[in-house]
Measured scan of single mutants.
Amino acid sequence: MSIQHFRVALIPFFAAFCLPVFAHPETLVKVKDAEDQLGARVGYIELDLNSGKILESFRPEERFPMMSTFKVLLCGAVLSRVDAGQEQLGRRIHYSQNDLVEYSPVTEKHLTDGMTVRELCSAAITMSDNTAANLLLTTIGGPKELTAFLHNMGDHVTRLDRWEPELNEAIPNDERDTTMPAAMATTLRKLLTGELLTLASRQQLIDWMEADKVAGPLLRSALPAGWFIADKSGAGERGSRGIIAALGPDGKPSRIVVIYTTGSQATMDERNRQIAEIGASLIKHW
Rank of each mutant, 00 (worst) to 15 (best):
P25G: 04
E26H: 07
E26K: 04
T27M: 11
T27C: 11
V31K: 10
K32Q: 07
D33F: 14
D33G: 12
E35M: 08
D36P: 13
D36K: 07
Q37K: 03
L38E: 01
G39V: 08
G39C: 08
A40Q: 08
A40G: 02
V42K: 14
V42H: 12
G43W: 03
G43E: 06
Y44L: 03
L47M: 08
L49W: 03
L49H: 01
L49A: 00
S51N: 09
S51K: 02
K53C: 01
I54T: 09
L55R: 09
S57F: 07
F58I: 04
R59C: 04
R59Q: 09
E61Q: 05
E61K: 00
E61M: 02
E62L: 09
R63D: 03
F64E: 03
T69M: 13
K71R: 11
K71M: 15
V72D: 03
L73P: 07
L74D: 02
C75A: 05
C75W: 00
G76E: 13
A77R: 06
A77V: 12
V78H: 05
V78R: 02
L79Q: 03
L79G: 03
S80F: 13
S80D: 11
R81N: 04
V82R: 02
D83Q: 03
D83V: 02
A84T: 03
A84V: 02
G85P: 07
E87M: 10
E87V: 08
Q88I: 11
L89H: 03
L89A: 05
L89Y: 00
G90I: 06
G90D: 07
G90M: 03
G90S: 07
R91K: 08
R91Q: 04
R91E: 09
H94G: 06
D99S: 09
L100S: 05
L100A: 06
L100K: 03
L100V: 09
V101M: 08
V101D: 15
Y103F: 11
Y103P: 13
Y103V: 13
S104V: 04
S104E: 04
V106S: 06
T107S: 08
E108V: 10
E108N: 11
K109N: 08
K109E: 05
K109H: 06
H110P: 02
D113F: 03
D113K: 07
M115K: 04
T116F: 02
T116M: 02
V117Y: 07
V117N: 01
E119S: 01
L120P: 05
L120H: 03
C121G: 00
C121E: 00
C121K: 01
S128C: 11
D129G: 01
D129N: 03
N130F: 13
N130A: 15
N130P: 04
T131H: 06
A132V: 04
A133P: 03
N134H: 04
L135N: 04
L136K: 03
L136I: 12
L137A: 04
T139D: 09
G141C: 02
G142A: 01
P143E: 04
K144N: 04
E145S: 14
L146W: 12
T147F: 09
F149E: 11
H151S: 10
M153F: 08
M153W: 09
G154N: 04
H156A: 09
H156Y: 04
H156L: 09
V157R: 08
V157F: 14
R159H: 07
R159M: 15
D161R: 01
D161W: 07
W163L: 14
E166N: 07
E166L: 13
L167D: 00
N168L: 06
N168G: 00
A170S: 04
P172K: 02
D174K: 03
D174C: 06
E175K: 04
E175L: 06
R176D: 01
R176L: 00
R176C: 02
D177G: 00
T178F: 14
T178C: 13
M180K: 05
P181V: 02
A182T: 07
A182L: 11
A182Q: 04
A183G: 07
M184A: 06
M184W: 01
A185W: 12
A185Y: 13
T186Q: 03
T187K: 00
L188Y: 13
L191C: 11
L192C: 10
L192R: 11
L192Q: 14
L192D: 06
E195W: 00
E195T: 03
L196E: 07
L197N: 11
L197R: 00
L197Q: 10
T198P: 02
T198K: 04
L199R: 08
A200M: 10
A200F: 02
Q203H: 10
Q203I: 01
Q203D: 04
Q204G: 01
Q204K: 14
I206V: 12
D207C: 04
M209K: 05
V214Q: 15
V214F: 15
A215Y: 15
A215S: 15
G216E: 15
P217I: 12
L218F: 14
L218E: 15
L219Y: 13
R220F: 10
R220E: 11
R220H: 14
S221V: 14
L223A: 06
P224W: 15
A225M: 13
G226Y: 04
G226D: 09
W227G: 08
W227R: 06
W227C: 05
W227H: 06
F228L: 13
F228P: 13
F228R: 14
D231N: 14
D231T: 15
D231Y: 09
D231A: 15
K232W: 10
S233T: 00
A235H: 13
G236Q: 00
E237M: 04
R238Y: 10
G239Q: 02
G239D: 08
R241N: 11
R241P: 11
G242S: 13
I243C: 06
L247A: 10
D250C: 12
G251D: 03
P253S: 10
P253E: 07
S254A: 11
R255M: 07
I256M: 12
I256A: 09
V257C: 14
V258I: 07
V258E: 07
I259G: 08
Y260N: 09
T261Q: 10
T262D: 12
G263T: 00
G263V: 00
Q265W: 11
Q265K: 10
T267Q: 10
M268I: 05
M268G: 15
D269T: 11
E270F: 15
E270G: 15
E270D: 14
R271S: 13
R271F: 15
N272I: 06
I275G: 10
E277Y: 05
E277D: 05
I278T: 13
I278Q: 14
I278M: 14
G279S: 14
G279E: 15
A280E: 09
A280V: 12
A280G: 11
S281M: 15
I283C: 11
K284Y: 10
H285F: 00
H285N: 02
W286Y: 02
W286H: 09
